[in-house]
Design a binder for these strands. Structure first.
Ligand SMILES: [Mn+2]
Ligand SMILES: [Mn+2]
Ligand SMILES: [Zn+2]
Ligand SMILES: [Zn+2]
Lengths: 158, 158
DNA sequence: GTCTAATTGAAAATGAATTTCAATTTCCTT
DNA sequence: AAGGAAATTGAAATTCATTTTCAATTAGAC
């Protein structure tokens, strides 16, 4: 099993690279590069966590009070379409976004006490999932797997 | 892997048994048995599928036009609390309910074309999930696993 | 610089889930 | 079998995240 460490915001070079990718995407689609999109993307990539539009908006507001919630919301949708972010909905039913590169599929452990989110990847499980699908003649395109419980910290403080 | 066939509504005896269980639950909690709760529970158990409150309400309305949506909604919550139903939220973000006995945990294959839902249970995967959790010092209480893709029928008709 | 189409932000709309409240019903007590 | 307290019901109102609308602004092609 490949263990993901805690997500730290990405390095400056990866951020620059991703922002280039966004620019290409925009040009390609006849969309425009704007100050807002640029700032929102930067902040989003820097945070690097699973954030809601609301959370990201509050963060951005501190520095740029002229950027509206709607634009943050729309930019996250855009990042999603461009492949730079994924939408995730966990048990609290809020839509969160996280930066994503094409390759790094992973699943989540979610603490029901403190809300912390840990990422993991387990190829054995992935293979078994494919096998299950096959047995039903089902062609799986994606999956969702989340484990809910108490994280190490919360378990120990109990 | 234990394969679940298509859910057919449950047998009359199991339904009766579950309705008894509901009655005990109500009495135990100081709640009341009512005509509405009885009819809603019956219909729900008979349908036996993953239904939304809205869907169940529409079904019930056909026979009993005096039963309101709110009561259906509240009764499903009640069935959930009493352990007779589980709440499930799939990718469409609607809350669905399905009859559940204490023992039969299972996960789902969901067709992104026709919406059909297939149930499966795979102990190997379950064990691996526990192992993943352990590696993180995480105490898993529950999990959610859904595979999205094309069911056999939709795949073949493509 | 001009022009057109895209973008922005505030406000309004949507829609599922939940709550409120007055009228009704259950069922425990006499 | 009444009486009465407490729970239930159904319609309507509310909540809350998400999404859409629209008039004003802006990007960027020419
Ligand atoms: Mn993640
Ligand atoms: Mn199921
Ligand atoms: Zn925790
Ligand atoms: Zn299908």
């Amino acid at each position: 099993m490949k263990i993901f460490g805690r997500r730290t915001g990405e390095g400056i070079k990866q951020i620059t690279q991703k922002k280039e990718k966004l620019k290409s995407f925009l040009k390609e689609k006849g969309l425009k590069s704007t100050r807002q999109r640029d700032l929102i993307a930067s902040e989003f990539l820097q945070i690097g966590e699973h954030v809601t539009a609301e959370e990201l908006y509050r963060e951005i507001s501190k520095k740029y009070s002229d950027i509206g919630f709607t634009t943050v919301y729309r930019t996250l949708k855009l990042l999603n379409k461009s492949g730079l972010a994924t939408e995730r909905v966990f048990a609290d039913n809020l839509t969160r976004y996280e930066p994503l590169s094409a390759e790094d599929h992973h699943d989540h452990l979610i603490c029901i006490k403190c809300g912390s989110i840990t990422e993991f990847q387990d190829l054995k499980i992935e293979r078994l999932q494919t096998r299950v699908a096959d047995e039903f003649g089902f062609h799986a395109m994606s999956h969702k797997m989340e484990l809910y419980g108490y994280c190490k910290k919360c378990k120990d403080n109990a």
